[in-house]
Lab assay of single mutants.
Amino acid sequence: MAEAPPRRLGLGPPPGDAPRAELVALTAVQSEQGEAGGGGSPRRLGLLGSPLPPGAPLPGPGSGSGSACGQRSSAAHKRYRRLQNWVYNVLERPRGWAFVYHVFIFLLVFSCLVLSVLSTIQEHQELANECLLILEFVMIVVFGLEYIVRVWSAGCCCRYRGWQGRFRFARKPFCVIDFIVFVASVAVIAAGTQGNIFATSALRSMRFLQILRMVRMDRRGGTWKLLGSVVYAHSKELITAWYIGFLVLIFASFLVYLAEKDANSDFSSYADSLWWGTITLTTIGYGDKTPHTWLGRVLAAGFALLGISFFALPAGILGSGFALKVQEQHRQKHFEKRRMPAANLIQAAWRLYSTDMSRAYLTATWYYYDSILPSFRELALLFEHVQRARNGGLRPLEVRRAPVPDGAPSRYPPVATCHRPGSTSFCPGESSRMGIKDRIRMGSSQRRTGPSKQHLAPPTMPTSPSSEQVGEATSPTKVQKSWSFNDRTRFRASLRLKPRTSAEDAPSEEVA
């Protein structure tokens, strides 16, 4: 009796068929016929556990003709996506030579605008209408194809895939403007070719909807975003200037109206006075309405000098805001240009540092100066060695804690006790272990408590650290204090090793 083939788990290929790579489910599931010992083939499952149809090819690079078809379809799909992405970037994010197409579109729109203006002049109306009709045909074809291509290429973005995504893309403001202008152009052409009475009025009214094509030149909205950011950044200043200017306008108009309503027919109503105030304070000055009385002229002159300053403030605020924003954008561009080279330089330096163990090129690091100058660790070890030599091999803490019996001779020589300023008595072995921070803190506390006492003391002649007598400086308080830590004499004296002298005989010792 033939044995059933062993159940295979995992992703390994079956024996005897090495080139074939078959994806098997996580659990080997066989058909009921196979479990019962029949000759049925096992049921194939996909990666998600769903059964595959009987005629479906197995996924994998070596699955025969199905694999070749899959490779061809995958390559075609990649080319399709690449083309779609390229078209989308050309239309929505132009760079380099892609601006040539947008310059061509701008020339078409500008020519249409010029011809629309010439069509309103009686001398050039006939020729402009003929040229404009031909140009409209060209623009309908160009913009119609462009609109379709834009909607198709938007599928390269995830949020615009599918018919719902394309509809979302078509609802964008600039796409809506394109659609309105396209419909208006078709209506103008249809009305112009019919030759009816309505054609002339339709051409004159709907052609100027094509002015909206100038708005579509900035599809990404960079200028509007820049203007919005400047207004938002200086909103408080703008609101303040406009508010005060509006108050000056209504008060000036009302007072001039009261002064001129009886003697001047131009100011017969408050609305006429508001019109005069707006034209005057905005420095336009049509001259259609002028005050005639001396009181009205004085009020107009005073409020004009006051109001023009507030009406001119928004222009200066926006101008300075634009300058600052442009400078910030230039700085951001320079930062973006330098970020990648800086990151590459840091990575290269780290690779060199991690692979080169000698690091002989590091001549400006802490390790280099640590090898030249005595390190703080060596100074600490030197302090501890000196203290243990004086205390008979014991550390200062051990000397303080060691009990001394009554009447027993002390094995240590008597030492002079010292007192730290602002604290109780402490171990004499710690007097010379006072660090730089303690010395600086002690000097600052003395300056806070009594700076007036220092200038009363007789001035001391500054001497070099080499000429100081070591026996005289029994305490860190003898170090000359200065008002600034930048004094080199104080810094050098604080680094010197001060020996400890006994109370009975204080021989001067120098520590090399």
Rank of each mutant, 00 (worst) to 15 (best):
L47V: 12
R204P: 14
L145M: 07
A76S: 13
L45I: 13
G55C: 02
G302S: 03
G66V: 01
L238M: 00
S205T: 08
L135S: 14
R216G: 08
W294G: 08
R44C: 12
V188I: 09
I121M: 12
R171K: 07
G66S: 10
L118R: 11
W294C: 00
A323G: 15
C157S: 08
G60W: 08
R93G: 07
P54Q: 03
Q122R: 01
L52R: 14
L132I: 13
W97L: 03
T278S: 05
V90E: 04
V215G: 00
R161G: 10
F167S: 01
M214V: 00
I250M: 13
P14R: 03
S65T: 15
I121T: 12
F167C: 08
A259V: 01
L345I: 03
C175R: 00
G12D: 09
I244F: 07
C112R: 04
V142G: 04
A4G: 13
N196S: 00
F110I: 06
S253C: 05
L113V: 00
D272E: 09
R44S: 09
V188F: 00
L212M: 03
G277A: 06
G96R: 05
L45F: 09
R8S: 03
G10R: 11
P61A: 04
D178G: 00
Q164L: 08
A315P: 03
S41P: 06
V176G: 09
A28D: 07
W242L: 13
I189N: 00
E35V: 05
E136G: 00
V181A: 00
E92V: 00
A25G: 12
A184G: 14
P54R: 05
C158R: 05
A199T: 15
I308M: 04
I308S: 09
A56G: 13
R20H: 08
R204H: 14
A28G: 06
E22Q: 01
D178A: 00
G12A: 05
G10V: 03
I148S: 02
I134N: 05
S185L: 01
N89D: 07
L212P: 00
L127R: 02
P59H: 09
I211V: 00
P14S: 04
R204G: 04
L11Q: 03
S111G: 12
T223P: 00
A68D: 08
I180L: 04
H77Y: 11
R82C: 03
S265P: 11
A187S: 01
I140M: 03
R7C: 03
H77R: 03
Q125K: 07
V176A: 08
R79G: 11
V326L: 15
I180F: 14
Y232S: 03
Q125R: 01
P54L: 08
R159P: 12
F254V: 00
V176L: 12
Q122P: 11
L52V: 04
E136A: 00
V181G: 00
S41T: 02
R20P: 04
S201Y: 07
K261E: 12
C131R: 10
R20G: 10
R43L: 10
G37R: 10
W224L: 00
S253A: 04
I140S: 15
E92D: 12
E136K: 00
K225E: 00
W86G: 04
A271V: 00
Q71R: 05
A21E: 06
G144D: 02
K78Q: 13
Q164E: 06
A342G: 01
V103L: 02
F208V: 01
Q164R: 10
P54A: 08
L47R: 11
A4D: 04
G49V: 07
K172E: 00
I244M: 02
R79L: 15
G155A: 05
T240N: 00
E3Q: 12
S73A: 04
F311L: 06
E22K: 13
K172R: 01
R81L: 09
L249V: 00
N85H: 02
G37A: 09
A75G: 05
L83Q: 08
N129Y: 08
L83P: 02
I148V: 09
G46C: 04
R159H: 15
L127P: 07
E123D: 12
L83V: 05
R81H: 11
A98S: 06
Q122H: 06
F182Y: 03
L299V: 01
S205I: 14
P54S: 01
L9F: 02
V215L: 01
G221C: 00
T240A: 01
I308V: 10
E22D: 02
E32D: 07
P14Q: 07
F208S: 00
Y257F: 00
V151A: 14
I211N: 00
S65P: 07
H124N: 03
V298I: 03
C131G: 15
L132H: 06
A271T: 00
G228V: 11
A184T: 05
L133H: 00
F310L: 02
L47I: 09
H124L: 06
V188G: 00
L133V: 00
F208I: 04
F182S: 05
S309P: 13
V114E: 03
E123Q: 06
R166H: 09
S65W: 01
I239L: 01
Q33H: 12
L135F: 15
L274I: 10
E328K: 13
L115Q: 04
Y88N: 02
R219C: 06
I197F: 00
N89I: 13
G40D: 08
P15S: 02
I308L: 05
L324M: 15
L118Q: 11
S116T: 02
P15H: 07
K225R: 01
P173S: 00
L45P: 03
A18G: 05
R159G: 15
H124P: 02
A187P: 04
V24M: 04
W86R: 10
N129I: 08
G195D: 08
R7S: 01
L26V: 05
P59S: 10
T27K: 07
P173A: 10
L247V: 06
G60R: 09
K261T: 15
A75S: 11
I177N: 00
F311Y: 07
P6S: 10
C157W: 04
F182L: 10
H330L: 13
N264D: 05
G64A: 11
A202V: 03
A312T: 13
V29G: 06
N196K: 05
R213C: 00
Q194H: 05
E126D: 10
Y232N: 00
G37V: 11
R216P: 00
C112G: 11
G195A: 02
A312S: 09
Q125L: 08
I140T: 02
Q33K: 01
A25E: 04
G39R: 04
I105T: 10
R219L: 00
G66C: 15
A75P: 09
L132R: 00
S50R: 10
R72S: 10
S74P: 03
K78N: 13
F143L: 10
S50I: 05
P341S: 15
K333E: 00
N89H: 14
E92Q: 01
L247M: 01
L306M: 12
L11R: 10
S74L: 12
P341R: 15
A18D: 06
Q71P: 09
Y80H: 08
G38V: 10
V149F: 00
G46S: 10
M139L: 06
A2D: 09
P13T: 04
D266H: 10
H102Q: 13
T120A: 01
R171I: 12
A2T: 08
L48Q: 14
G39A: 06
R95S: 12
V151I: 02
D218G: 00
G49A: 04
I308N: 13
V181L: 15
A21T: 10
G221A: 06
A2P: 05
V87L: 14
F143I: 14
G16V: 01
P15R: 07
C175G: 05
P51H: 09
V231I: 12
C69F: 08
E130G: 14
L127I: 03
A128P: 06
L118M: 10
E126V: 04
L145W: 02
G70V: 11
V29E: 02
I317F: 03
S63P: 13
E35D: 08
L295P: 00
G46R: 05
E136D: 00
E3G: 02
L108P: 00
M206R: 00
S74T: 04
I140L: 14
M340V: 14
L209Q: 00
E32G: 03
A2S: 02
L145S: 03
V114M: 07
M340R: 07
